[in-house]
Amino acid sequence: MKRKILSAFAAAFLLGALTGCSGGSDNSLVVLNYGKYLDPEMLELFEEETGIHVEYEEYESPEEMYTKYKAGSIDYDLACTSDYMVQKLIGEGEVLEMNYDNIPGIKNLDQTYFEFSKAFDPENKYSMPYFFGTVGILYNTKMVDAFEVNTWDVLWDENYSGQIIMENSVRDSFMVPLKKLGYSLNTTDENELQKALDLLIDQKPLVYAYLVDESSDEMVAGNAAMALVYSGEAAAAKIYNKDLDYVVPMEGSNMWIDSWFLPKTCKHAQNAEKFLDFLCRKDVAMKNFEYVYYATPNLEVYKALDKEVQNDPTIFPPHEVLEDCEVLSSLDDDSTKLYNDLWKKLKSN
């Protein structure tokens, strides 16, 4: 009996040792990023140039990223995520200060976006912007007129019943009725949130589906008239279906910024800084832009683009639009619970 237990433990240790193996050698870098958010060729190029091996991990939603990070089985050196999640992690003391002096390439980035970043990184100590954009309505010009989509009200238009796609994500979908009612999208006021929920419940019968990544696919396939999407998705969708167009309604919307930061678990800070510098390089940033097609804060890249692309409001939101937009900030536990309970109420309706 003793022997049995001993052999079991031995095997368990072995298993643990194998799985716990992370960040191995010195010349490596463990990166955590959104899915399809970095051109894989760039990873190969980085390895070629520096000899640093990159272990690249992906995730779908900021909440998933948080769960993965907190699970702690892998020590990440570098991570990229959305504004409010960065803020939450900073608040929990999970983020190391970034040494911008070690990232000379940062001069390629437009300083405006560091200003915008103050919404979640008030002293610009922790993050480096990667891509940004807005949330708006992707619509089919053959089914909907341009002037109709100038307001969020169109998402409640009964003429489009069964043709409306919303986001399957709490904050994004709540943002719409909150903006429509003129409230802040970061509100924690129960009354305001309840009113927003009521609107969402009214809307539910008209909604085709609550999707995340599939929204643009459905729009391209012509299965719906309009969808709540991120500007980058919209830009990509427009390429596949010429009938599609994108707009940010006049009531204002959400501006999002995805940024890089160094988590507390970073073991290869030097390699991380080299990587960030690499990303700021004009050729690399250009390749990434062409791969992701979201708005890049990299000025050098912007300057090198065609006038058409520069002036495309879908890809590069004009400043007037950005002024009407709010950046999401993270919520405390009670507010998170409130939002989630309301979301559940909506889904179960």
Partner: peptide
């Protein structure tokens, strides 16, 4: 279900993935 059908399995999934509870 297009995100419109909330089953108990979805509630549990949501608790872990979105609600972080």
């Amino acid at each position: 279900g297009g995100g419109k059908v909330l089953l108990i399995g979805n509630v549990i999934e949501q608790s872990f993935m979105q609600g972080m509870n």
